[in-house]
């Protein structure tokens, strides 16, 4: 048992060390930018997974939360000079409120109806932002988008000239969300969620307040997603309603989490990093060849992955991980059976 523990810890340490020393080796800003984007997408997919993966709810409107976080933080910064470091929590708070407002009526809906409701809310928010020029004293910018006020190199205001700080911030954000996901999965709420994922009626019958459990988990998810939105805003320094709130943002999160393995702690991380890396590599090679060829190839790879590994890429890694630890697949099965019985 001790050997297994040592192996586990050494693996975690290895990944952390790799994570922290990457910028020492990757000096080209473009590569660092691509790796940073991989981390950001891994973070966003993990944030989506906190609620949607663990509770088995298909939200196709999480772009709403990135948008609310980003817009609140940027408006506070542009018009009141409040640092985005503080503004991001205001943005996340607004997203939490919104998640409750949205969740209260929609969590009664099941399956496709819930997914459809989130699509509708997502498109609605895009239209709302596109048609709002100003909100009281705040400039929203409507469909033309919102420029983040430029400060040059201003760490206190979340703006850096170099790519390295952005990388480290994304890395720390990812580590935090993974730790949080790990905690959530093994918490009482986590068990509630996996129970209601399997069978909401049975969960309700066991005395779980299904709606409350969903509301709390959705609030966590909205909080983290919104912080990701603020990060996006500060990295790109320009907000366009359709890019930050639209279907591309919402769907990408779902996509990465599902291909990586939704409902697991590390699946969305794996999905976010691998798929985004693949898409960048393909764009690098085929972006200027035939029109849209790179997107086609990307689509093919994703289809293959979903066809052959519907549980997500994490499934493959899990096997190698177990082999590395010296646990056979059967042993793992028995363990999980025991754990379920115990809880």
């Amino acid at each position: 048992m001790d050997a297994v523990k040592t192996k586990k810890i050494s693996l975690i340490v290895l990944f952390l060390v790799i994570g922290f020393i990457i910028p020492q080796f990757v000096t080209k800003p473009y590569y660092l930018h691509v790796i940073t984007m991989c981390l950001l997408w891994a973070y966003l997919a993990s944030s989506w997974n906190l609620f949607c993966g663990f509770a088995g709810q298909l939200s196709l409107g999480h772009g709403v939360f990135t948008a609310v976080g980003a817009y609140v933080a940027v408006m506070l910064f542009n018009d009141y000079n409040i640092s985005p470091w503080i503004g991001m929590f205001a943005g996340a708070g607004a997203a939490v409120l919104l998640s409750i407002l949205i969740g209260y009526p929609t969590f009664k809906l099941r399956g496709a109806y819930y997914a459809l409701a989130t699509v509708a809310i997502g498109s609605g928010v895009v239209v709302l932002i596109e048609n709002t020029q100003a909100l009281g004293p705040f400039r929203v910018g409507g469909a033309e988008g919102l420029i983040v006020k430029l400060m040059g190199n201003a760490p206190a205001f979340f703006q850096f000239m170099s790519k390295q700080p952005y990388y480290y911030i994304a890395l720390v954000m990812l580590i935090i969300v993974v730790l949080f996901a790990f905690w959530l999965k093994n918490s009482r709420l986590g068990y509630y969620l996996s129970a209601l994922k399997e069978d909401p009626e049975a969960a309700e019958a066991l005395g779980i307040n299904v709606r409350n459990a969903k509301l709390v988990a959705a609030a966590y998810s909205a909080f983290f997603t919104a912080i990701g939105g603020v990060y996006y805003a500060m990295l790109i320094r320009y907000l366009e309603p359709n890019a930050i709130a639209g279907p591309m943002m919402s769907n990408e999160m779902v996509f990465l989490a599902v291909v990586g393995g939704s409902g697991t702690v590390l699946g969305p991380v794996v999905g976010g990093i691998t798929l985004h890396a693949i898409s960048e590599v393909i764009q690098f090679y085929f972006g200027d060849l035939a029109q849209g060829l790179h997107l086609f190839i990307y689509g093919l790879i994703v289809v293959f992955m979903i066809m052959f590994k519907p549980q997500g890429i994490i499934e493959i890694l899990q096997k190698y991980y177990n082999r590395f630890l010296g646990i056979t697949d059967r042993g793992e099965d028995e363990k999980s059976v025991k754990r379920t019985a115990g809880s």
Binding site: I236, E240, Q283, G292
Partner: peptide, 23 residues
């Protein structure tokens, strides 16, 4: 001439600008 696809997406535009400039 080196062409890069923006997909009409601001974030892709940024990453392609980074690539064309630094690589």
């Amino acid at each position: 001439m080196l062409y890069a696809d923006s997909k009409g997406d601001p974030a892709t535009g940024v990453s392609e600008a980074e690539r064309l400039i630094t690589l």
